[in-house]
Design a binder for these strands. Sequence first.
DNA 1: CCGCCGCCCTGCTTGC
DNA 2: TGCAAGCAGGGCGGCG
Length: 270
Amino acid sequence: MPELPEVETIVRGLAGTIVGKTIEKAAVALPKMAVAPRRVNFKRAVRGERIVSVSRRGKFTIIELGSGRCLIVSLRMTGRLIVLGRGQAAIPYEHVSLHFTDGSRLAFADSRQFGRMRLVERGELWDAHLGVEPLSGDFTPERFIGMLSGRTTPIKALLLDQRRIAGVGNIYACEALWGARIRPGTPAKALTKPAIRRLHDALVEVLQRSIAMRGTSVDDYVDVRGLQGGFQNALSVYGRAGSGCERCGRAIVRTVLAQRGTWWCRTCQR
DNA sequence: CCGCCGCCCTGCTTGC
DNA sequence: TGCAAGCAGGGCGGCG
């Protein structure tokens, strides 16, 4: 499941490989995965466009085109963006492909077909619903405290809410809560200021550490070269039901919270 | 504005 | 061992 660190790794990979290339042709095998504004034909619109930059907002990849239009990619759970060389065979579930004039291509593959590549107009406000970037200077402990005040929502559900903080998914919500020694079901408003500060720091720390290790490959995630990340070997709780907690040795449990699998330590997360 | 629910899909796990 | 059923899950639209 690509979350912020995985998308950041992909974005860095794309920035180093496809910026400056020109789209000769788009191949769309599954039309629902390549979305364009009304009255705009996706394939026709992207033909001839040059890739100006690649960046990230939350879990979304932003491919800026010469015209000012952007391709916004959402990978959801199983989406992949892979750069392939001239003549390389199609990869599994390669549903949308941007063929460049130099013969290489960007493949957008997704076994579950939930991912989307959306063309947006220049200046279109497509990300108004997204909250603060957790690795930006805007994400201060004070702002986080304000975000939580008065809310009865379980803290883990709030961490997953993209309207508040953009980019955190199930893996890093679980890991950050373990790092801050906070029980996932705690109502947000019940957290003390020191606890909120611990969680703020744990969240930033785990995201940064994962980026440094090129993300977590537990299921489908690979980078633009098809290589796995390294953070799956550094996980403390996610997917580790039954194994011993690194702090206290008691078994990590899996429960369900807000319709999501939740891994945590009953002993040292209070 | 906010929270909740259902939907989209298919690979994988579970259970008989 | 083989097969069918059921689960998982991010984002979004609809609803109250």
